[in-house]
Each structure stands twice: as structure tokens, then as C-alpha cells.
Simulated assay, not measured.
Amino acid sequence: MALPTDNLLALFRAVVDIESVSRDEARLADEVEATLGGLDHLEVLRDGNAVVARTNLGRPERVIIAGHLDTVPVAGNLPSQVSDGPGGVIVHGRGTADMKGGVTVMLWLARRLDAPARDVTWIFYDCEEIDVASNGLGRLVAHHPDWVAGASLAVLMEPTSALIEGGCQGTMRFDITTTGLAAHSARSWLGHNAIHDMAEVIDRVREFDCGEVEVDGLVFREGLNATMIQGGLAGNVIPDSCEVQINYRFAPDKTADEALALMTRWFDRWTLNVLDLSPAARPGLDEPAAADFVAAVGGEPRPKYGWTDVARFSSLGIPAVNFGPADSGKAHAVDEFCPVSDLDACAAALARWLAPAHRLV
């Protein structure tokens, strides 16, 4: 099917209705490529199921606007449905919040902004919702670093209710295992209880000072939490092993290595089995391009709680912010939805920033 490009609501529903669960984005990527191909002002490139469209107008500044095509699995919430809400039309369905609303705005503007004041690289990528190793943006950076080079700012269109969310938290997950000696619970003195030993680890988690950290004018909150625990063999056996999984969400004043070193020191009596470690991203709101973006969008920027691919741009030396339609609290929900007014607001703000002195065709 050809994507309708003359009506924002119709385009949004068409994008949503193309099922694109992670690793199955080919059909939507084909449509994105076809929708942007053949336009005089855009060069369209492709790597797997990632599509890049960029202007090459010789502007003194280049910016990136990015969004992922994939969604989490469908849960009986496709095709899309429309309802009337207090603020206007609402579209319901898988991906409406995370993040096909953002993808729709990107397509809408990429076709129409034929003479932006800044050169723009539009990136539509795959496999964001699954393991980091499969991430399409990471693959683009590895295979085609020149496709993402030279930008002064990246805008990731994750759902933020059309408000700027700067940077993101880093995240680290690790296991700690305590060991004991199995015995019959009627003769517990013959064994050693590994679950009891885990109490010291949990106490250490609770003792960590999870305060507020100001970075580039935004206040981030950190968190250290035990998120999973398992141990024991049977109700009458003293457990000889217990394992807890701990998640550290750290502010962007720390590098990933610094976060790892901090946790290693904090849990110095135990061995940490690191499951994943993803860096945080500084907001970079003091950068000129970011300041211009804030001025165009308006409102008070807030910190991003959670990890997003702005961290990947930050690692490349590109300041990045999150800005997109829909409430992030509805991402992955069965009743996922997005107000069309959020799409309108994001499109208007991006147009003000990208083309303040040029027509929107």
C-alpha cells in the first residue's frame, strides 16, 4: 500500500496499521523509502530495515531527527481505532505512543520541508525494542558512520507529550549470588542459609543514597533497586544458593565506567555479574543548537527518566534530546494511544526550528 501523504491523521493510521514488531520492519521500511524517494530535496539511503533521508543544501549546520520503526508485540490492539477525546481526536493501537506518532511527524515534515534553514538527516531505524546488539541505529553507526556524522544536535522522537526531555539516565543490571550449604531444615545447624546471607546485600541496596543530581540545568534522580530474587530448592531444605538482580539507574554526571566502579566499591564484599551497562547522556542544553531548539519549541525542558538512544548520539559527541508525541506512560500498554493534537504540536515546533525563514510546502 502507498502511504497517504496529504492528511496527517490518515498518514498516522496507515503507519500504525503496518505491523512492524521488532525484526519484522521490512514492509514499513519499504513504505518509508517509497514515500521519501524521488523527492528532489532528499537523498535516500538504506541499510537493512533502516532508512536515512537527508538534505544536502550546504547549510552551515546539520541536525538529526530520528525514530524507530519497530514496536513491541501486538496484543489484539491492531488495526488502529479512533475516538474523540477532550482535546480532540485520539488514535489507539500498538505503536501509537511508542513511537509511530514520532515516525509520522518525521515523514510529514521530511516531504514538506524542501528548503530548511538547517540541513536535516532523518533516520528511521529498526530493532530498538529488543537487545542492544540488534539496534538498527547502532548498526548504522558501525556500517555508515558518515551517515550520522557532522550533526550539531539530534532529536529522538520518543514519546514525551510534546515536551523536551533532555539526555537520559544510564542503566546497569547485575547479579549477586550468595552461597551456603544445603541441609534438612529440621537440622538446619548442619547447613548454611544462603537466603539469610542475602539480607546483607538487600540492606546494602537500601543504604545507597539515591539523591538528585543536576546536569546541564536539569535535575535527575538516581535509583538502586533489587528487581528480581530467587533461591531455595524445597520447603524443607536449607538453601545453598540465592541470587538477586539489581538495577542501577544513574545520572549523566557519570560515565558507564564510573557507574561500574561505584557499584563495585559499594558491593565490595560480593562479586558482581554484570548483565548490561548502557551509558547515560548529558542533555547538552547549553549547546547553541539545543538552545535554539528549546526556544523554538517553548516550555520548560525536563530530564528523561529511563534510557533512550540519545545516549548513542551522546557517545558520538552529538548533544541529543527526546521530543515526540504521546504520553510515555502509554508506551507498550495494551491501551496505547496518542492524541493527534500532539502530532500537530510536534510538527509545528519542528517546522519553526528547522525552517523559520522558509515555506512549508
Rank of each mutant, 00 (worst) to 15 (best):
W270N: 04
A281Y: 00
M198A: 10
E258H: 05
D24F: 05
G93D: 04
P73D: 01
T96I: 01
V72Q: 04
V63W: 11
V334Y: 14
H68P: 02
A280W: 01
V213M: 09
T177A: 10
E31A: 11
R23F: 15
D6M: 09
F337K: 10
S328P: 15
A296V: 03
R359V: 15
V215R: 00
I238T: 12
I202C: 13
D24M: 02
H332Y: 09
D119G: 03
W108A: 04
A234P: 10
R111A: 07
V213F: 09
R187F: 15
A26K: 12
S161M: 11
L360K: 08
G317D: 06
V155Q: 11
T35N: 01
A296K: 01
G102L: 03
L140T: 10
C168M: 09
V297K: 07
Q81M: 04
V237C: 06
D70L: 03
V21Q: 04
L57M: 14
R269A: 05
L9P: 09
R173K: 06
G223A: 15
R54H: 05
Q169V: 06
S315H: 14
L36S: 00
I176Y: 06
D342Q: 03
T160V: 08
H192Y: 10
Y305R: 11
L69D: 00
T5P: 09
D17Q: 01
E212T: 14
K304I: 01
L69I: 00
D268W: 06
V244F: 08
T171G: 14
G317E: 09
V72H: 03
S341L: 04
Q230E: 14
I18G: 00
R59Y: 06
A291V: 08
E129P: 04
N135R: 10
D342T: 05
A280M: 00
D257L: 12
